[in-house]
Amino acid sequence: MSIFVNSDTRVICQGITGKAGAFHTKGCKEYGTKMVGGVTPGKSGETVEGLPVFDTVEEAVKQTGANATMIFVPPPFTADAILEAVDAGIEVICAITEGVPVIDMVHVYDVVKRSKSVLIGPNCPGVITPGQCKIGIMPGYIHQPGKVGIMSRSGTLTYEAVWQTSNLKLGQSTCVGLGGDPIVGTSFIDVFERFQQDDQTEVILMIGEIGGDAEEKAAEYVRNHVTKPVAAFIAGRTAPPGKRMGHAGAIITGGKGTAAEKVSALEAAGIVVAPSPAEMGQAVAEALRRRG
């Protein structure tokens, strides 16, 4: 098993006729993802990478049986695209787009919460179940089917963790990029809940960063609800307060959201915290060892 996506997942790309949409549709298709079509308003009848383009998500779902989408539309239209996917009953919505206004996400989150859809992102690399389905921009070849469930607020740092766990021959069950924005559709806790129930996932790696209190809340959740071994890394131990570190969400404000606070909350919950980003793979191995 795996979480969110597998070899049966049927994926469309919203914004497929754009440069990024077309490029990554090709990449996902080559990886083996069941890409079934795309959506760009006003471009129905065209094809991209041999896939049919539709005007609306509703039409795409009707014609292709799609149950997942990968969104590449520009930031001013991202909220609209996500809500269209929810309306069409898409189960897994991956919003890759970076730069969505936070007020837009307040409304989007509220609608998603009341629906049956899951939103991953925005401003995220996507989700991948190695060997089965890749939705997003991550380099496929670094992944390996296996036992580590990985979740992260950062893209390239996830690749680093994936690479390390692949080199240790642990492999990954599913890797979820949550996104670097202040408001994202899926939280660490949502993913912990799924990894805990997933047979294939034997150990969980959480990659957090400074800002907000999502990692502290996740630590509390792990303490009470997760029986599987957990490892973690927090990026930004050296970040100064008040400076946005690339991600809109990665900022220490009012003395809150520091790496030190997060690390101590995680360790108090029995989570193995990697002291350096080069040791994420070892931390996972250590978490497994401690459980025997």
Partner: peptide
């Protein structure tokens, strides 16, 4: 000089480490 915000932060961290 790094690609990605998380990796950029992590790179600062490991230099300090």
């Amino acid at each position: 000089l790094v690609n990605g915000a998380g990796l950029a932060m992590a790179t600062m961290d490991i230099i300090k480490y």
